[in-house]
Design a protein around this nucleic acid. Structure first.
Length: 464
DNA sequence: AAAAAAC
């Protein structure tokens, strides 16, 4: 960290070109983050580097900026890129490409985004024209290579982003294969959120005499993120979620599910209950994935229900809340998921739902984070009082004009005609202010929860 | 147990 430094380092001190500095200041950046301050000089020297840093630390610019300076010295050749950047997911690759576009505004460097799900034609055209930088996911890159569309013999800089994630996703064979297609004489940069032994082994294999740079995560889980845990019957999760989203006036949230199918089910359910929500998972058409992400970033969508495709690396500022609708199978994903909030010094809240089946998973999470989260019991909340049903019944429709559930509870409700309900569209999202924050949402106040406390529905493992 | 990533 840099807090001991009395001297403030600026981008102008780091040996970047005037054109890059201009693009940077137009983007509103003047002072480098710690990872940028440390990495940029090393990369400019031509050294190999291992960077241990999470997203939110400014890691992308840390490897993009110095690369620009190195690459402007050479010239573009058709089908022979001089830099290759690998990322684990399509959205992440696209994010890196955005950075390149932004920072090369006053340089004439070209780049191509080679990811799956998008059409081949445009990518092939770009390759034929000649690009300086390839930003790719492994599968599509190898696809192009095997079809003879690219030569990798002129690659001078090889960047592997989110290396630990790549390993988790089983990309190791692809990475080894791709590295084998590159010249031995090159500069290799590797970035990873953790420095697990297998990452070190990979670094030893691919890097020569690397410098190691590591920065603290932007927010330690305990410090800025308030973690809440609810024990809930699996069938009541949706109802509890709606209750919490309304009572906490959550206006900006990721909601993670373990399964793609459940992402869709939950999204549909929340939509029927008039939450302004989108979905994101790997079975969707790529254009829709990008669209949802853009809408969530701009604030057009208030919430995004997603699979772990969105758990890591997506740089969306100021998300107030992360919901673990399911406890992730891999406890490291818990840390990554809730790391979507509490960023850049802001506070955030994470809400996790656990069923009796999740005891083991939860235990793994506590062990990893070295922090045990005590379950929250909603005062007076009876799980029985929550509605397991999915279709909006008397509560959701009655709520908007009556303000309370009144005496409808316990009886079979007299629901309004379904047509009428479907016609009601979620109100347009209010615009964000300069900080990206949304004004408080105007959902009706939640129904009062009848007194009674947890009773029969309490999971057996909670009853001591 | 799931998800992600190539056609």
């Amino acid at each position: 960290m840099t807090e001991e430094n009395t001297e403030i380092v600026r981008f102008t001190d780091l040996g970047l070109s005037d054109e890059t500095l201009k693009a940077l200041s137009e983007s509103g950046y003047e002072t480098p983050t710690p990872i940028q301050e440390k990495s940029i000089p090393i990369i400019l020297m031509g050294r190999d580097m291992v960077g241990c840093a999470q997203t939110g630390t400014g890691k992308t610019a840390a490897f993009v900026l110095p690369q620009i300076e190195i690459l402007i010295g050479g010239r573009t050749r058709a089908r022979m890129p001089r830099s290759l950047i690998l990322a684990p997911t399509r959205e992440l690759a696209a994010q890196i490409a955005d950075n390149f576009g932004k920072y090369t505004k006053y340089h004439s460097l070209s780049w191509a985004l080679l990811t799956g799900g998008d059409g081949m034609d445009e990518q092939i055209k770009a390759l034929d024209r000649g690009v300086d930088v390839l930003i790719a996911t492994p599968g599509r890159l190898l696809d192009h290579y095997e079809r003879g569309r690219i030569l990798l013999t002129d690659v001078k800089i090889f960047t592997i982003d989110e290396c630990d994630r790549m390993m988790d996703m089983g990309f190791i064979d692809d990475i080894v294969k791709i590295a084998g297609l590159l010249p031995q004489m090159r500069q290799t940069l590797m970035f990873s959120a953790t420095m697990a032994p297998e990452i070190r082994k990979l670094a030893e294999k691919f890097l020569q005499n690397p410098r190691e740079v590591s920065v603290a995560p932007p927010a330690q889980t305990a410090a800025l993120i308030t973690q809440e845990l609810y024990y809930v019957d699996a069938r009541k999760k949706r109802e509890l979620l709606r209750h919490l989203l309304r009572s906490k006036e959550v206006h900006n949230a990721y909601i993670f599910c373990n399964r793609k199918r459940d992402v869709t089910v939950l999204t549909d359910s929340l939509r029927r209950h008039k939450f302004n929500v989108g979905e994101l998972h790997g079975d969707m058409v790529q254009s829709k994935r990008y669209e949802t992400l853009a809408d969530f970033k701009s604030g057009k969508l208030e919430m995004m229900v997603c699979s772990d495709v969105a758990a890591r690396g997506l740089d969306i500022p100021d998300v107030a809340c992360v919901v673990n609708f399911d406890i992730p199978f891999n406890s490291e994903d818990y840390v990554h998921r809730i790391g979507r909030t509490g960023r850049a010094g802001k506070t955030g809240i994470s809400i996790s739902f656990a069923t009796p089946d999740d005891v083991k998973l939860l235990d793994n999470v506590f062990t990893l984070t070295k922090h045990k989260v005590e379950p929250t019991s909603v005062p007076g909340l009876t799980l029985d009082s929550l509605d397991a049903g999915d279709a909006p019944r008397e509560r959701s429709s009655g709520r908007s004009d009556r303000g309370g559930r009144g005496d409808s509870r316990g009886k079979k409700p007299s629901a309004p005609p379904p047509r009428e309900r479907e016609r009601e569209k979620p109100s347009a999202s209010p615009p964000r202010d300069k900080t990206g924050a949304l004004p408080p949402r105007t959902y009706p106040t939640p129904d009062p929860i009848p007194a009674g406390g947890f009773d029969d529905d309490i999971p057996a493992f909670l009853r001591r």
